[in-house]
Design a protein around this nucleic acid. Sequence first.
DNA 1: GTGGTCTAGACCACG
DNA 2: GTGGTCTAGACCACA
Lengths: 135, 135, 135, 135
Amino acid sequence: MPENDHKLAVNLDSPIAVYVQIENLIQFEIVSGRYKAKDSLPSVREMSETLGLNPNTITKAYRDLEIMGVVSTRRGVGVSVTDKALKVCEGRIRAMVTAHLREAVSECLATGMSGADIRKIVSDTIESGLMPYRP
Amino acid sequence: MPENDHKLAVNLDSPIAVYVQIENLIQFEIVSGRYKAKDSLPSVREMSETLGLNPNTITKAYRDLEIMGVVSTRRGVGVSVTDKALKVCEGRIRAMVTAHLREAVSECLATGMSGADIRKIVSDTIESGLMPYRP
Amino acid sequence: MPENDHKLAVNLDSPIAVYVQIENLIQFEIVSGRYKAKDSLPSVREMSETLGLNPNTITKAYRDLEIMGVVSTRRGVGVSVTDKALKVCEGRIRAMVTAHLREAVSECLATGMSGADIRKIVSDTIESGLMPYRP
Amino acid sequence: MPENDHKLAVNLDSPIAVYVQIENLIQFEIVSGRYKAKDSLPSVREMSETLGLNPNTITKAYRDLEIMGVVSTRRGVGVSVTDKALKVCEGRIRAMVTAHLREAVSECLATGMSGADIRKIVSDTIESGLMPYRP
DNA sequence: GTGGTCTAGACCACG
DNA sequence: GTGGTCTAGACCACA
């Protein structure tokens, strides 16, 4: 039962800094095609209210994304996805998730879990549907 | 190519706190059977020198493990694995790595990666051998 | 009468953001050789007290410098100049000051100032001694 | 190569506020004699369309210039250069560009650039012709 | 002691 | 309304 009205969410208990989670979330949205070049991102204030975070935290994420070349910000106008964003994000994100997957499998092996068990968990997760990125 | 001279290693650049990495490392060693009940752990000083970390960091990890009931420390004697350590760690670690694996697969799906691609990476990693836990 | 005990200073009235001024100041110190590879920078707290600024402002500057590869920060240890800092800064700063000089001369020309007058001001400033960078 | 079709231009990426850039641009035009007493300035709407800026930005610049006594606005008539504009601007702008020039030279000295190198850049720029003010 | 993150809230530049 | 900067002050991870 996939939830279609896709919503961004951060995990405050994660050891990963919230602003980094937001950067990743947005990059996932871009890679998955939900944000396209020239699309506007939610304003800092809107995003901060949606996520229940301080505007400064959003600002920090947006600023990093700007340095990466993923978004472009203009005072009084807003923040929008750059033309090269997809290219930039695709490489970064693909490499990141592949590394995470390899690490996760290695962890499982390190506990003595069998290859068959690992494959079963993987298949179950794949079949349980397209889960949104949850940091 | 079996895992000879298995060594603990922490990743200072990881967003995961070093003391958490150490706690996990030791639990992995227990789950995988390299540390057994009543085994002594390296002293705080030895561990800190081996890993190049501040003794306080090791102390904090050992204290947390003691609270979890995984190790017991006795002044003048040292730190040793408790009898119930395996039982405690097995559940925790198994749950952790399973969760990590599901998250990693979900991340891959979120980028639009196909199930076949994911399974291929998983199989490759499984076949590349038993990699040590690397946080 | 040059002032030898060289001190960093920022201009709060400048249209240039304070944290950018700090980034420039430190890069000047590196280019001019007053900071060398592996030198420690003043701690965030110390710098903030010296300059009368909020620690967050210093943190922002240090973070940008880290992204640029000019400094390296380690928790609990401090911030130090990287080995490649001089190379990185030299290009950036040299280009920046040259551009500023050209712009300043162009401005003078645009007001109708004569080449001779411009050269006189330049010579006077050169001869008035090595002034510290004042943003 | 005389400066034909001289055009005002602002730099949106400059740390200098756009309305300040416009104020300076107009004062440069006055000092250089391209705008004389009683000349009309472009209307707010025309200026905003020419420069692709929000009319509010132009309005703010014109208002500041009026406060300085450089222009006078009359409802239904427009904005025109005052009789004392040249006198007012000349001092302000001359002081500003001189200060910029001194600062730029100081910056160069601070990087360790030699007086000869500085003089060479200055001469090159002077000889490359009368560049328009570019903020 | 060090740096890192986050919040709350202010003021500014711009549309 | 938009984003940008800065302050004040809190808590955490680490040495």
